[in-house]
Computed example of a mutant assay.
Amino acid sequence: EKAVRANDEISIKDDTLALGQHVRKPGAEIMAGAIPLEAGHLMNPASVSFLSAIGVSLVSVYPSPIVTIIVTGNEFQSSAEAPVWGKVYESNSAGLRAALQQAGISTINILYCRDDLNDTVTAMQKAIDGSNLVLLTGGVSVGEYDFVVAAAEKCGVLQHFHRVKQKPGKPLYFGTVADAVVFGLPGNPSSVLTCFYEYVLEAISYLTKRPVKLKQRHVRLQGHYTKAAGLTHFLKARYEDDVVFALSAQESFRLASFATANCLLVAEESVTEIAENSIVNIHLLP
């Protein structure tokens, strides 16, 4: 558009034109022998395109873990069935599957076992043999029908801790065996999700080297909160405009408040009262 052709010659009418301008020079994108992306780089669509553009078709990455969820209990029924006296709808597997998918995990297996030691051992061993991350729900306390800890011992799992000074989720269990990480989560659904967000996400972040763990903020509390010392409380809460308020229905079996929560408000173990307008720590939910 800025060229004039005359007598088989072309003249460029552009005073700003410079020699070599708009010419792709060898090595402009990357020099020979240079490292395209440093170790630990989080791959994204542009990363994939960049590597393809320079002829790299294979790279070493941290794979997403294969996860098995084991639901323990005699009391559950499918949500597709009419309610039966003495039974409850099983929701933990659905909630955990959704949370895992939100964290980028796609390979998720679900097993069910009764409150029986042999059943629990069989399910756990199958999960350990075929998974990197095993999540059990229920059966992790110290009751007559709680067999997760004993089953883990029989499966050779090295226990790192059992029972945490927190609410909800006090019976939480964590162990490792071979290439598998094992979490024994409590049975109540709010406890399951709280422990998933506070502990399992940390494990997924470590295994995948992706920053999926919860972000924290310090904000002002609307209202006040009191509790006994001795346990850290994770409260279902709403965070809006740099203010947070605890929701009602904090019981560990109740999910309605969790469904509308966007953060967990942390009341530390030694704290007995948090006054209104105090600055508190919250963990933002995904």
Rank of each mutant, 00 (worst) to 15 (best):
L136H: 07
C113D: 06
L100P: 03
D241G: 06
G156V: 11
T232K: 15
D8Y: 11
V148L: 09
T232A: 15
A246Q: 03
D242P: 04
V148F: 03
E81W: 04
L185D: 11
E268C: 02
E153K: 15
E268N: 10
E202I: 14
S190V: 11
V23K: 04
N92E: 14
L135G: 03
H283R: 15
S252W: 11
A39C: 12
C195A: 08
D14Q: 10
A6C: 08
V84C: 03
T194R: 02
V280M: 09
Y199I: 05
I54S: 07
L193S: 05
T120P: 00
I70Y: 02
A229W: 08
G95D: 10
E202Y: 02
L42T: 08
S93C: 12
A28K: 13
E1T: 10
G27W: 13
D15W: 08
I30N: 11
T137R: 08
V142Q: 02
Q77K: 03
N188D: 12
V121N: 07
G104Q: 04
H283Y: 12
L111V: 05
I54Q: 06
A94H: 03
G130R: 11
V149Q: 02
R210C: 10
V84L: 02
I110M: 05
V182D: 00
I35G: 03
K126T: 13
A246I: 09
V59Y: 08
G104F: 13
E29R: 10
V134Y: 01
I110L: 00
N74L: 03
A3C: 15
E75C: 01
S257W: 00
V212R: 09
D115P: 02
R220A: 00
S205P: 10
T176K: 15
P168M: 12
A150T: 12
A99F: 13
I279R: 01
R220P: 09
A261F: 09
A229F: 06
A80I: 02
E240D: 14
F234V: 00
A150R: 14
E198Y: 07
R114I: 03
I108G: 09
K126C: 12
Y145Q: 10
C195V: 14
L284Y: 05
A18L: 00
Y173N: 08
L193F: 04
